[in-house]
Amino acid sequence: MERQKIIESIKDIVKKQLMGEGTGHDWWHTLRVYNMAKNMATQEKANMFIVEISALIHDLYDWKFYGEEGQIRKTGKLLNEFIEDEKEIEIIMDIIMNISFKGGTASAKQNTLEGKIVQDADRLDALGAIGIGRAFAYGGHKNREMYNPNMAPMKYSNLEEYKNSKGHTINHFYEKLLLLKDKMNTQTGKKMAKERHEFMENFLEQFYKEWDGEK
Score class of each variant (00 low, 15 high):
G128Y: 00
G128V: 02
A129W: 13
A129C: 14
A129Y: 15
I130E: 06
G131R: 00
G131C: 03
I132P: 03
I132Y: 00
I132F: 05
I132Q: 01
G133A: 08
G133Y: 08
R134N: 07
R134L: 06
R134K: 15
A135L: 06
A135E: 03
A135Y: 00
F136T: 02
F136P: 00
A137F: 01
A137K: 11
Y138V: 04
Y138P: 04
G139I: 02
G140D: 12
H141W: 12
H141V: 12
K142I: 05
N143R: 12
N143L: 06
N143D: 13
R144Y: 02
R144D: 00
R144H: 09
E145N: 14
E145W: 10
M146Q: 15
M146F: 14
Y147N: 07
Y147H: 07
Y147V: 07
N148V: 10
N148T: 13
N148I: 08
N148R: 10
N148S: 14
N148G: 13
P149I: 08
N150Y: 12
N150M: 14
M151L: 15
M151P: 11
M151I: 12
A152G: 13
A152T: 15
A152C: 13
P153G: 09
P153W: 01
P153L: 09
M154I: 12
K155I: 11
K155Y: 13
K155R: 14
Y156N: 05
Y156V: 05
N158G: 10
L159R: 09
L159E: 05
L159A: 09
L159C: 09
E161G: 06
Y162K: 01
Y162L: 04
Y162D: 03
K163L: 07
K163H: 05
K163E: 07
N164R: 05
N164E: 12
S165E: 04
K166V: 04
K166Q: 08
K166G: 03
K166T: 02
K166I: 01
G167L: 02
H168V: 01
H168S: 08
I170S: 00
N171V: 05
N171C: 10
H172Q: 11
F173E: 07
F173D: 08
F173G: 03
Y174Q: 05
Y174K: 04
Y174T: 07
K176Q: 02
L177M: 09
L177D: 04
L179E: 02
L179W: 01
L179T: 06
L179K: 10
L179M: 14
L180T: 01
K181P: 00
K181L: 05
D182P: 08
D182Y: 07
D182E: 15
K183I: 07
K183Q: 12
M184S: 03
M184W: 00
T186Y: 09
Q187M: 15
Q187R: 14
T188N: 14
G189H: 02
G189T: 03
K190C: 12
K190M: 12
K191P: 11
K191I: 14
K191A: 15
M192W: 04
M192Y: 07
M192T: 03
A193E: 00
E195T: 10
R196I: 00
H197M: 10
H197W: 05
H197T: 03
H197Q: 09
H197D: 04
H197A: 05
H197P: 03
E198G: 10
E198Y: 11
F199H: 13
M200N: 03
M200E: 06
